[in-house]
Amino acid sequence: MQKSLHIDPNKCTGCLQCEMACAWENHRSFTIAKSRIKVFTFHKEGRFVPYTCTQCDEAWCMTACPVDAIRLDPVTGAKIVLEPTCVGCKVCTIACPFGTINYVASTGKVQKCDLCDGEPACAKACPTGAITYVDADWTGLGKMRQWAGKTDTNPATV
């Protein structure tokens, strides 16, 4: 059974331990600007929403890449950026309708969540259980993954 990151914003306190863990895992630095998971703050709603790639089935980023720099990890199901191959054209960053693959100016390459080869550092660092790594079926992410195909939603009220 493949696993995915399950995110429960209700539990998140905005401590950003996940962002630091991700930045450390991939850049050997705590600089959260380099994290692949981002906690968005809804100040007026009193809400923190951790957000990263759901490894969506469409993999828009992967198909859009002109030079084959994004590949599927058959074990984890993650779509992985091969840094040496990436030319930094950024077309994937606008192709992904979730906004979860981003350009890193200092490396000249893009980055996205790669599920840390099956041992997500963010989930390990999260002190509240807001991020867990669980069997894909439980995550309800299917809903979110299909979202891109949806049109004419109701207006947002909060």
């Binding site: 606008i94 992904c96 906004g99 350009y103 891109a148 049109t151 939603t153 207006p155």
Partner: peptide, 21 residues
């Protein structure tokens, strides 16, 4: 402005109703 720009596609192509936003 280059962070999370994919979301522009998501919002526009998805014809998302922004409501209060």
């Amino acid at each position: 402005f280059a962070d999370h720009v994919g979301a522009f596609r998501g919002l526009i192509e998805g014809r998302v109703r922004l409501g209060v936003w």
